[in-house]
Simulated assay, not measured.
Amino acid sequence: MPRLPDVAREYDGGNTTGFVSPAGDSLEGPIDLSEVLDLRRPHRYPVRVKGDALLERGIQHGDILIADAAASPAAGQVVIAMIHGDVLVCQLAYRCGQWWLKPSGADKEPQPVADEAEIWAVVAALVRTSV
């Protein structure tokens, strides 16, 4: 593979010949994912998904979830929970005066959030490394 000249690899849009592009002031610099996903906060963690946890929510095997352990859970959010030592990714629901953990799939029953269940974190973002 041929090596690109340094100018091509470090192009910032400001060194052009001819007229200045009207879009030149809207060029964005490099994207820092740790800043965008706010990973510098001590309670934010990347967690890799194993299995087809919540396909209907677009969460697939191999995705990376950004878990926020300090966020307050709310109905409809995707959460990471621990039940009997198992870690689950599920949707949090509130019905009939009780909180429920709703896994993906019609064959899986929602489980009530009881003493043996702990909501560890709320999913704040999803990163997909393969398309």
Rank of each mutant, 00 (worst) to 15 (best):
I59Q: 08
D107H: 15
G29Q: 09
R95M: 09
V36K: 15
Y45W: 14
G76W: 05
G85K: 02
F19N: 07
P110N: 05
E56Q: 08
G105Q: 12
P42E: 04
V87R: 10
W99A: 06
T129K: 07
R40W: 13
K102M: 12
T17E: 09
L54M: 08
V89G: 00
W120Y: 01
N15K: 13
E116V: 10
A75G: 13
G18H: 05
G51M: 12
L39F: 14
L88H: 05
E118F: 00
Q91L: 02
P22F: 13
G76Y: 02
V131M: 06
R3P: 09
G13R: 12
V79S: 01
D68T: 10
R40P: 14
P73Y: 00
D115A: 09
V123I: 08
R9A: 08
L39H: 11
P110S: 04
L65H: 03
R95P: 09
S104V: 11
L55K: 03
G29T: 07
V127N: 01
P46G: 11
R44Q: 10
R48P: 15
P5V: 06
I80H: 00
A23E: 12
E116F: 03
Q60T: 09
Q91Y: 00
A70T: 06
A121H: 01
F19K: 10
P22H: 14
P73E: 00
V49D: 01
V127M: 06
L65F: 15
I64S: 03
A125F: 01
L65W: 02
Q77W: 03
